[in-house]
Design a protein around this nucleic acid. Sequence first.
DNA 1: TGTAAAATTTAGTTATGCCTAAATATTTTT
DNA 2: AAAAATATTTAGGCATAACTAAATTTTACA
Lengths: 220, 220
Amino acid sequence: MLSQAAEDYLKSIYKLQEKGGKVSTGVLAEFLNVKPASVTGMIKKLKSMKLIKYERYHGVTLTNAGKAIALEVIRHHRLLELYLFKALGMPWDGVHDEAEKLEHVISEDMEERMDAYLGYPTSDPHGSPIPDKNGVVPKTASIPMTSLQDGQSCVVAEVNDSDSALLRHLGSFNLYPGTRFRVIEVAPFEGPFTIDVAGQQAVIGREVAKHIFVDDIHDT
Amino acid sequence: MLSQAAEDYLKSIYKLQEKGGKVSTGVLAEFLNVKPASVTGMIKKLKSMKLIKYERYHGVTLTNAGKAIALEVIRHHRLLELYLFKALGMPWDGVHDEAEKLEHVISEDMEERMDAYLGYPTSDPHGSPIPDKNGVVPKTASIPMTSLQDGQSCVVAEVNDSDSALLRHLGSFNLYPGTRFRVIEVAPFEGPFTIDVAGQQAVIGREVAKHIFVDDIHDT
DNA sequence: TGTAAAATTTAGTTATGCCTAAATATTTTT
DNA sequence: AAAAATATTTAGGCATAACTAAATTTTACA
């Protein structure tokens, strides 16, 4: 059985790989909040298990076996987030931390039962896609909020799930996946976004907007 | 934060203490499936944390702090068992193993939400009492099935939760907590019990009967 | 009571996964 | 292309929690 630490490495590699960019020792270390020297050690281990490919100074790549494990952990995480949200009524800014611990521990059986209870969902409370049992990730073609222009209307597709303060902030504006809003004004010089959500005005800073992805854009 | 291993030691000490008898290094080792030398190490650690009292060759006792942790872990375990059983429909012979892993990992918040969902229950699917938030354990005055006599009728109160084969066996006779049955005959010389459960006859061996506790006994 | 048996502890190892500090390799800059 | 900056690895430690084998302590029995 794979250690929790190893699972976290694979999950992180997958996510960093998704974002584009080379997954170097240093990047991984930063992402996982460990020191580069520690990453070197785990890289050796994962390589010897044939879960990753690695060449010095050229970054890491998941093998198919490694990717399968990464996707299974991510599936666990997102199913758990949605389950905790829907079945236990946990707030959307609380489910990430809980899922982060549970994801390494639940059985296949529990995974399947949650999946069935939820009706085989394809996205979690933050809009992130839930890979299916075969590791197939639903397509999500969304665009960063930062690329919106004055007057455009759109629907929140996905937000970063790991920053609970950010999530509470967005929640205070009722900005959840599925919520439609309209850009009233984008302040010049990389300024904040003034938007209209269901008749209410809200100001969203650039840094926050970077973590919001949107869909279904209309010019109005 | 306390390690999972330490939590398991405290939980085991509590359970062994309940059963009566001195909780010696060797007994603990056997119960936890580790070697006595390993127990010595953990005993030192737990003693230094003031979670147990210990004197060589005289066994271990929980301090109040240690008992509180033990009861919290047991509470988690039993709430989880009942939750998995009721909310996710897991079979009663499957919930123990799942709960065994989850019990160390769930938050107070999740504990409270499960508790509320279940309506603040006082026993798990195997009839074991669920300690409340303050560590108060509901009274359960039940008697081992092995002390029953011919013709007595009673209700299953509690069964050992950790042996899934045993649980499946009992399930095949519909022998769950709350089920009433009548002893038709106790075979002599420590023989098996022939019982009547809802009109069906079943033969329960002594070894199995030792793991069944009953209540509400009537002579018929 | 002395000796054998049983229980427990000590000493030394192992594996995991992290750390720091120092060494080395690569890339970038000048 | 050499020097400087950056990235990565090596070497040596630490903590946890298990193990084995050997020593020691306690208990039990003859």
